[in-house]
Design a protein around this nucleic acid. Structure first.
Length: 689
RNA sequence: GGCGAGGUAGCUCAGCUGGUUAGAGCGCAGGAUUCAUAAUCCUGAGGUCGAGAGUUCAAGUCUCUCUCUCGCUACCA
């Protein structure tokens, strides 16, 4: 993109509406987009930024069931909560939409039908069980019946757990739906697949050379290495067909006769939400949405986290191109992940800094969090947020360098020139000239960095101007010069005021609130980016009030925040774990044969990361058990241990090895495993009951 | 197991197409200074650029092997 685009459409990943927003989300896809868009707006470019809640998918229905409520209630709650979190951090979308809206359903269906007409999908028609009561087709796992081989009456549609034989649903005797218990009927159904292998050739050119339809589309070197790298590895590895519909009752219904109980796959549904959002933005603002998605001189940029790369760079582009008429992304500046206090961010372990809680605890201090996240943004590798680092950046950089600089300038001007911008003589010393050059070049440096998605670098440039201002004041010592030379003092402070005004402009994308406060203190409300680099505060302009820009973060505040991490203490030991399974019977329990066993040998299964092949002694035989614990235990750690064995589990071939039983493990909150070990004195072969 | 991205000063990170003594911020040590939110400024110490081998007149920067971290994926739940 050397030529300036006529307009830019920016999207941020649609956050999934089943949990609150934390700083990892913010630093990944929202703050960078916000910085980029604020900058473009300041440059008076035509830019629209859309986002919205992703409200479909199985995870939401499961959560609703667990909480005893409806999917609608879940998404309504999080839709509201997420908007609050974003606005608390001044993440200012032009439009924030949601995928459960009527407009989106209508548009997504229309889009799907056009793709269908154009033959973008391959159709596979087959007989599948249908639950008339639940009005949906049943995945193999949702059907239970009697195994034709061993007559066990709890065989699933894909496999009998008792004898281990692989089954297909129609082999089952007396099949039942596990959803309703009713007898399913066979119906003809169509599945739609996206055959991605058809698209390998143009994708390769698009990703590697930035060429699309024979034209230069974007500069591939401007893409981040990890984005291009991951995409190329997918395409080179050969693309597979991917199902574009799911059997679910919560989502965009497939708009085809006889497709009851089928919805569009979320990865078809969600990115189309970008387009819906743009349409709704246009409707709201009396604008035309089409140029933003269809005109060749529009630039399309997707901000996402690294886990979404393939969908935005491969699958969505395929859909857009197949449909025709739509633009493909010109850049996808995906960020890596943000870690927290030495560990991964985890919603379930409450190892996160929640955007909403931050604003509750630090009201009005969104700029501080924006600043810190921008300075440590995971642009090319994973980054780490710690509260100590937060404190040190806020105190040393924002309060001491920026806040104090502005304060010095305003106080000196008030003291010596009655609070009005003094008149400069017009002759500058070489020191002055050097500083004026930096002032002139800083907006360009900041802007270039932002346009290349180098936000930390941009912030460094902006803060560099402030640092230079501090140095200038210290070296020129206006408080001494004033005693002998009022005009020279006026020159110094005049320049310092221009530096302050320029800093307010280049920092505005990062620190919108602070920038406004500085403008007010300089007696103006209008500091346009296009005037940056030169003199912005006219002679004689009366200065306004300057509040303390940044309070220091205290050690106590840091401690409070750190103490909040991890399992919630107020819950008094109650954990947020999976709901209990529905009741079972004593008879059912009796079918399981649990025994104490001793591991006598262990080795890694070749070609598998997670599997250990164990030889266990039961007291009456020795057998092989394959266990998925290799990531947590080395073979030498488990030999000699007494374990709990589910002895009568149907044998099953795993990675070429027949496993005769299962070793019971406790799964801890952090995802690691512990053996269920009998107390001292229990011997191999002891029966557990 | 396959693939991708990383591993650079105590900490957080920059280092584009290979080129003289490897950089920034913080922290640390010493000094200057007082207009200012005990703030600011200067100077300094500090790195065998994950390990090993290779290509080259020259490698943090290219090639190969190994190792660790993160992600995708497979096998697995």
């Amino acid at each position: 993109m050397t030529a300036k685009p006529a307009r830019t459409l920016v999207t941020s990943a649609l956050p999934y509406a089943n949990g609150p927003i934390h700083i990892g989300h913010i630093a990944g896809a929202y703050l960078p987009a916000d910085l980029y868009v604020r900058y473009l707006r300041a440059r008076k470019r035509d830019v629209v930024w859309v986002c919205g809640s992703d409200e479909h998918g199985a995870a939401i229905t499961l959560r609703a069931r667990k909480e005893g409520t409806t999917p609608r209630a879940i998404v309504d709650r999080y839709h509201a909560e997420m908007q609050e979190a974003f606005s608390g951090l001044d993440i200012a979308f032009d439009h924030y939409d949601r995928t459960s809206s009527e407009e989106h359903h209508g548009f997504a269906q229309e889009f799907f039908l056009e793709l269908l007409e154009k033959g973008a999908f391959t159709e596979e028609t087959r007989q599948q069980f249908y639950d008339p009561q639940e009005k949906q087709f049943l995945a193999d796992r949702y059907i239970q019946g009697t195994c034709p081989k061993c007559q066990d009456d709890r065989a699933y549609g894909d496999q009998c757990e008792k004898c281990g034989s692989a089954l297909s649903p129609d082999e089952l005797i007396d099949p039942k739906s596990t959803l309703s218990g009713s007898t399913p009927e066979m119906r003809e159904t169509t599945l739609w697949y996206l055959p991605m292998d058809r698209h390998e050739s143009w994708l390769k050119t698009y990703l590697e050379d930035g060429v699309l339809d024979g034209e230069q589309h974007h500069d591939p070197k401007s893409w981040k290495a990890h984005v291009t790298g991951q995409c190329k590895s997918w395409v080179d590895g050969g693309l597979q067909s991917r199902a574009m519909t799911r059997d679910l009752d919560w989502g965009v219904p497939v708009p085809v006769e006889g497709a009851d109980g089928k919805v569009l796959y979320v990865w078809l549904d969600a990115p189309l939400g970008y387009i819906t959002a743009t349409r709704n933005w246009a409707k709201k603002n009396g604008a035309d949405w089409a140029p933003y998605w269809k005109d060749k001189d529009t630039q399309l940029v997707h901000f996402i986290g690294k886990d979404n790369i393939v969908f935005h760079c491969i699958i969505f582009p395929i859909l857009l191109k197949e449909h025709g008429g739509y633009l493909l992304p010109h850049n996808v500046p995906a960020n890596e992940f943000m870690n927290l206090e030495g560990d991964k961010i985890s919603t379930s372990r409450n190892w996160a800094v929640w955007a909403k809680e931050y604003i509750d605890d630090f009201p009005g201090r969104s700029d501080e969090m924006r600043y810190v996240l921008a300075s440590i943004m995971p642009e090319q590798k994973d980054a780490e947020f710690t509260w100590e680092d937060f404190q040190s950046r806020v105190n040393n950089e924002l309060a001491d360098v920026l806040g104090n600089f502005v304060n010095r300038v305003v106080v000196l001007t008030s003291k010596y020139f009655d609070g009005k911008a003094p008149a400069a003589s017009g002759t500058w010393t070489s020191t002055d000239e050097a500083l004026r050059e930096l002032m002139a070049s800083t907006p360009g440096a900041v802007g270039d960095a932002i346009e290349r998605y180098r936000f930390r670098d941009a912030l460094q440039h902006a803060m560099g101007l402030v640092r230079a201002g501090n140095k200038y004041l210290t070296e020129e010592e206006p408080w001494k010069v004033m005693k002998t030379d009022a005009q020279r003092t006026a020159d110094i402070l005049s320049l310092a005021l221009q530096i302050t005004a320029n800093a307010a402009i280049v920092l505005a994308p990062f620190l919108p609130r602070t920038s406004e406060k500085i403008a007010t203190a300089l007696g103006t409300s209008d500091l346009p980016w296009d005037a940056a680099g030169g003199d912005l505060v006219p002679t004689g302009q009366p200065l306004g009030a300057l509040p303390i820009l940044f309070e220091k973060v205290t050690d106590e505040q840091v401690e409070v925040q750190r103490a909040k991490l991890g399992p919630d203490a107020s819950q008094e030991g109650l954990r947020d774990v999976e709901a209990e399974k529905p009741g079972t019977s004593f008879d059912d329990f009796q079918t399981m044969d649990l025994r104490v066993a001793e591991v006598v040998a262990a080795e890694k299964v070749k070609g598998a990361d997670k599997l250990l092949q164990l030889t266990v002694r039961t007291g009456y035989d020795e057998r092989t058990v394959v266990s998925g614990i290799a990531e947590h235990f080395k073979p030498e750690d488990v030999v000699g241990r007494k374990v709990t064995l589910l002895a009568n589990l149907a044998p099953r071939k795993i990675r070429g090895v027949v496993s005769q039983g299962m070793v019971l493990m406790a799964s801890t909150e952090d995802g690691s495993l512990r053996f269920v070990t009998p107390d001292e004195g229990a011997e191999a072969g002891d029966i557990i009951r």
